[in-house]
Design a protein around this nucleic acid. Structure first.
Length: 881
RNA sequence: GGGCGCGUAGCUCAGCGGGAGAGCACUCGGCUUACACCCGAGCGGUCGCAGGUUCGAUCCCUGCCGCGCCCACCA
């Protein structure tokens, strides 16, 4: 037995006040340099790319999720001895940013065109500095260890250089080209969009069939976009379509416009759809454009950049496209050319993903990335295992996308972003300027007006933040980065782009080894959060009211790989409650002198409860470690939650109270408690850093749990015999409690009881760690005294045998309640018996099922039989109601 | 139109071949010297429907119904 140490004096307030403490702890960690990486270190590197928050005004739950999960991974790695580096990012060129400023201007009745390019860019910078700084400051409240200083995220100069470098390389490799193509055009943003920035959803439109030409030379075509007929330059039919064979090669007259247009034969036309004839508007439809190219058709554009009819040479010039649609249709109707109409006609229409304006396919001169070789490299990196996607189910989506990706439109007709580094000379010269080259000067030279897609620069994040294109120490040490954590919704936008550029720029080395894709946070009913629905939750508000740890714990606990999570305030409150529970458990332990510095009792001196909790601890350590390694945040968190609450607090602490009151076991219990809490707090630290810091430092007196080692080997191997006895004690206690409740005995009232059969059931230990002591304390029983007159008896079947409890309830027992309770037990046992009998009566089951399964059923049957016997006897012994 | 996923307790979700689980909500009883942000006990489910495979199916297969997401140039 170890010598008794005086209880440690502790300074733990009765209450945990996250609002007061979290910020202070965070500042302390920063001051002590815990979050700083050291590229000269010989520790293994752990580098993580942080998704740039979209600057739209405030922190939202998506960011909170990214940062919480990233911080969990990183804190664990630090504890494991890694040299961890964050690559925090800001979205530099984002359309969202520009949109915010444009909206602000619009509110004042102005537009960017009133300001001019330079003033507008200034405006955006100002806004970005203000809001971006604010957002990043808000991030700190989550406790992530990111150095969010201005210098860190404003890598404008470096990023510009990286952008220019990669552009030039791709251009020289013929992987960037400029061409006139049909692209997605947003008439409101007045810019080109890539495919991915277009959302398709079903809209109610109309399908109008129009007769072109007259008499023999007439054909009926159907369209959902009547107004585009002003730009028609042909009618196409399938080459094998006999109905129209006679028309191919002839010309028919286009109504309204009066132009003669040819009928061409093209494989693209589906003879089974509609009339089998299709109008061809090469400048306003991607398919028609292809047909136009194959047949060398003219491609007149009949709309301007705001989607207003223009240059058609008709009276419709100057009308908006939708107004023109009606006007043209009515004109055709007046001419008797409308053959049929279907309205509403529901069909998919593309919308600008940012402003929801209906996208207009538009023929224009744009810059493109020739995606095929880059996308193939990205696909191969996953196929050959250089990059792993978690969860694996999302791999297919990744491959489908990467293997079928169209060329990427990278030019944007916006003012905020990286300018395309191409200069045009007075005689048609085109010069792509590299980062260390001087752009040509002189009369008539001008730079391309367009800027690059935001994802072009964002795609460079893992390399540009490490100093690329220079061969820096950071790049050498931290590339490829370890993990990318982000929502599955930007897999294609961002992840794929980073992979394409990273692999290209770094000669086949991918930008990260693992991609972990988390789900989206939804409201309590699983609905998408949106301002219009009014179901948005402000993470800062939650942090204010419940603490950052509570929000982090909630996010971790709900974060099943690839699945969305429903978040409600109740969940956050529940997490806060967990923190409080942990706090109070530690307070109890400390006030009883628990410490991890005390030596664990020798094997032989351990009580069953000690053995059980130490065994469970070892399992929890092993399990938590494995789950976090596999990005299973929810399971890891859930496991810790149940261990802490259901096992440690509900059972071990209650049993420990008994052990602490007895000299023989007090010191051992202090040691076990101290040990278990020490390890548990370290396991929980990545998830809830603040409260664990406060508790762990109080418990251990050491510097900080941030730099404490991650537990790998703790507790003790499981002791099945002790576990079995403890399970019996738990069952015994629960049965007595159940009986008490049914009999309406308040918990506060201790009742006298005589317990027999403990020794026979293997629970004969009379000491503080034994069943009798536990039963007295946890089931609130007193030893029988003078004049003990039992009024009720209770039999409990345990694995080791039957225990008989006689209880003095000081009065008649509630027979009806007792009958009801026993009745439920009997029903359950009979059902169990029935199921077991059914199986055992089946010869095929006995023949084919594995031996252990059969054995298990037999055991259960025996238990059921014994239970029925026990309950029946009890029922018979009860007085008549 | 193609692909993926989901339908398990009132709600949100785990479990995914052999005894139906958690949190919240609900009912009853308790301020038992860590904790009422708590403790104890309990109620609650033909595991979407119909077939099939199997000794055995919530779990595997097929079909259907309902829901969601992603992708898509069919007028």
């Amino acid at each position: 037995m170890t010598e008794t140490l005086p209880p440690r004096t502790v300074d733990l307030p009765a209450q945990w006040n996250p609002g007061e403490v979290e910020g202070v702890l965070y500042e302390r960690w920063v001051e002590r340099g815990y979050f700083e990486a050291d590229n000269t270190s010989d520790r293994p590197p752990f580098c993580i790319v942080i998704p740039p928050p979209n600057v739209t005004g405030s922190l939202h739950l998506g960011h909170a999720m990214d940062h919480t999960l990233i911080d969990i991974l990183t804190r664990r790695r630090r504890m494991q001895g890694y040299d961890a580096l964050w690559l925090p990012g800001m979205d530099h060129a984002g359309i969202a940013t520009q949109n915010v400023v444009e909206r602000r201007l619009a509110a004042e009745g102005r537009s960017r065109h009133d300001l001019g390019r330079e003033a507008f860019v200034e405006e955006v910078w100002a806004w970005k500095a203000e809001s971006g700084g604010a957002i990043l400051g808000q991030m700190r409240r989550l406790g992530d260890g990111v150095d969010w200083t201005r210098e860190r995220f404003t890598l404008d100069e470096g990023l510009s250089r990286a952008v220019q470098t990669i552009f030039k390389r791709l251009y020289d490799d013929d992987l960037i080209y400029r061409a006139e193509r049909i692209i997605n055009w947003c008439p409101r943003c007045r810019t080109a969009l890539s495919d991915i920035e277009v959302d398709h959803h079903d809209d109610e439109g109309e399908l109008v069939s129009i007769r072109y030409g007259d008499g023999e030379d007439s054909v009926v075509v159907a369209t959902t976009r009547v107004e585009t007929m002003l730009g028609d330059t042909a009618v196409a039919v399938h080459p094998d379509d006999e109905r129209y064979a006679h028309l191919v090669g002839r010309e028919i007259e286009l109504p309204i416009v009066g132009r003669k247009i040819p009928v061409v034969a093209d494989e693209h036309v589906d003879p089974a759809f509609g009339t089998g004839a299709v109008k061809v508007t090469p400048a306003h439809d991607p398919n028609d454009f292809e047909i136009g190219r194959r047949h060398d058709l003219p491609m007149p554009s009949i709309m301007d950049e705001a989607a207003v009819i223009s240059g058609s040479g008709t009276r419709f010039d100057g009308m908006d496209r939708f107004a023109a649609r009606e006007a043209v249709r009515e004109e055709l109707r007046a001419q008797g050319r409308i053959v049929a109409e279907k309205r509403p006609y529901v069909h998919a229409v593309g919308h600008c993903s940012r402003c929801d304006t209906v996208v207009e396919p538009r023929l224009s001169l744009q810059w493109f990335v020739r995606v095929e070789p880059l996308a193939k490299a990205a696909g191969d990196a996953v196929r050959d295992g250089r990059v792993t996607i978690h969860p694996k189910e999302l791999e297919k989506r990744f491959f489908d996308w990467v293997d079928n990706m169209h060329d990427w439109t990278i030019s944007r007709q916006l003012w905020w972003g990286h300018r395309i580094p191409v200069w045009y000379g007075p005689d048609g010269e085109v010069v792509c300027v590299g980062p260390d080259e001087e752009p040509p000067t002189g009369e008539g030279w001008r730079q391309d007006e367009d800027v690059l897609d935001t994802w072009f620069s964002s795609g460079l994040w893992p390399i540009s933040t490490l100093g690329w294109p220079d061969k820096t120490k950071d790049l050498e040490r931290y590339y490829p980065t370890s993990v990318l954590v982000t929502g599955y919704d930007i897999l294609f936008f961002w992840v794929v782009r980073m992979m394409m550029f990273g692999l290209y720029a770094m000669d086949g080395a991918p930008p990260f080894e693992h991609v972990f894709l988390h789900g989206l946070i939804r409201d309590q009913h699983g609905k998408k959060m949106s301002k219009s629905r009014g179901n948005t939750i402000d993470p800062l508000d939650l942090i204010d009211r419940y603490g950052a740890d509570a929000l982090r714990f909630t996010i971790a606990r709900g974060s099943n790989p690839g699945a969305d999570m429903a978040l409600s305030e109740e969940w956050v409150a529940g997490s806060r409650n967990f923190g409080t529970k942990l706090w109070n458990a530690t307070r109890l332990a400390l006030s009883n002198g628990a410490s991890p510095d005390l030596p664990l009792p020798a094997e032989a001196d351990r009580t069953d409860a000690d053995r059980w909790i130490l065994g469970r601890l070892a399992e929890v350590v092993q399990q938590t470690d494995a789950l976090l390694e596999d990005f299973q945040f929810a399971k890891a968190t859930e496991g810790l939650y149940h261990f802490t609450w259901d096992e440690l607090c509900d059972w071990y602490l209650e049993l420990a109270k008994v052990q602490l009151r007895d000299e023989r076991t007090a010191d051992g219990t202090r040691a076990v408690l101290g040990h278990v809490l020490d390890v548990l707090l370290r396991l929980l630290h990545p998830i809830i850093p603040f409260i664990t810091e406060a508790l762990w430092t109080a418990l251990t007196g050491r510097e900080s749990v941030v730099v404490a080692p991650w537990p790998t080997d703790a507790g003790a191997p499981a002791d099945p015999a002790a576990n079995g006895r403890l399970a019996d004690v738990q069952k015994l206690v629960t049965e007595v409690r159940r009986f008490r409740t049914e009999q309406g005995l308040p918990d506060s009232r201790r009742v006298a009881a005589k317990v027999e059969g403990l020794a026979g059931a293997g629970l004969g230990d009379p000491g503080p760690g034994g069943a009798a002591a536990a039963l007295r304390a946890l089931a609130r029983l007193d030893d029988p005294g003078e004049g003990f007159a039992p009024t009720a008896t209770l039999d409990v079947l345990l694995s080791g045998g039957r225990v008989h409890v006689e209880i003095d309830t000081s009065g008649a027992i509630d027979v009806a309640a007792e009958r009801a309770r026993l009745g439920r037990d009997l029903a359950a046992a009979r059902k169990e018996l029935e199921q077991a009998d059914k199986k055992l009566a089946n010869p095929k089951f006995l023949e084919k099922a594995p031996a252990d399964v059969v054995e298990n059923v037999r055991t259960r049957r025996e238990a059921a039989v014994a239970e029925i016997e026990r309950v029946t006897a009890r029922l018979a012994a009860l007085p008549e109601a």
